[in-house]
């Protein structure tokens, strides 16, 4: 069943892809026998054939995900989106502390240790990546002014 639903969703997407390939993509002028539309057309036909085979004869597999696991997964994905959302505004250190603590706590780490892990990951990650390897990570809009005043105070 899960196979069929998944294949059906993909089929809708692929049909959209095919419609665009057959109607919308056009080069204003071209010298080659194959334009930008031919390859997507071939691919869409192959994909549709594959999907039809799967719809016709799906493997009968149990999609054994309990409600509890669904909840965990949704929570994890929500946290990832939240982490991505806060990455620049809060900066690497704060957002990582937050994300590391909450996710490891949800996955069963004792609360204090989770906090320790989050803080360690945020601070050590920053020191390792920015100070040592010179990679580009967000300071954070909230933190940046602090850094600046600090630097001004030094200079």
């Amino acid at each position: 069943m899960a196979n069929r639903i998944f294949a059906a969703v993909l089929l809708v997407v692929t049909l959209g892809y095919a419609v665009i390939a057959f109607t919308a993509i056009k080069a204003p002028f071209q010298y080659d026998p194959l334009g930008p539309e031919s390859w997507p057309r071939i691919l869409s036909i192959v994909a549709i054939l594959c999907l039809l085979v799967i719809l016709w004869k799906p493997d009968d597999e149990a999609f054994d995900v309990t409600r509890k696991v669904w909840f965990r997964l949704t929570a994890a994905v929500a946290m990832l989106f939240g982490y991505a959302e806060l990455y620049e505004p809060l900066g690497f250190i704060l957002s990582t502390i937050l994300f590391g603590t909450i996710l490891s706590a949800m996955l069963g780490a004792p609360l204090l240790r989770a906090l320790g892990f989050g803080v360690a990951a945020g601070v050590a990650g920053w020191l390792l990546c920015v100070t040592l390897m010179d990679l580009n990570l967000p300071e954070g809009e909230l933190i940046a002014p602090l850094f600046e005043t600090h630097q001004q105070g030094e200079s």
């Binding site: 996955l107 989050g118 990951a121 990650g125």
Partner: peptide, 10 residues
């Protein structure tokens, strides 16, 4: 695993 998983994301 509960430390490994967030570490991968980070």
């Amino acid at each position: 695993q509960h430390y490994l998983t967030p570490l991968i994301a980070i």
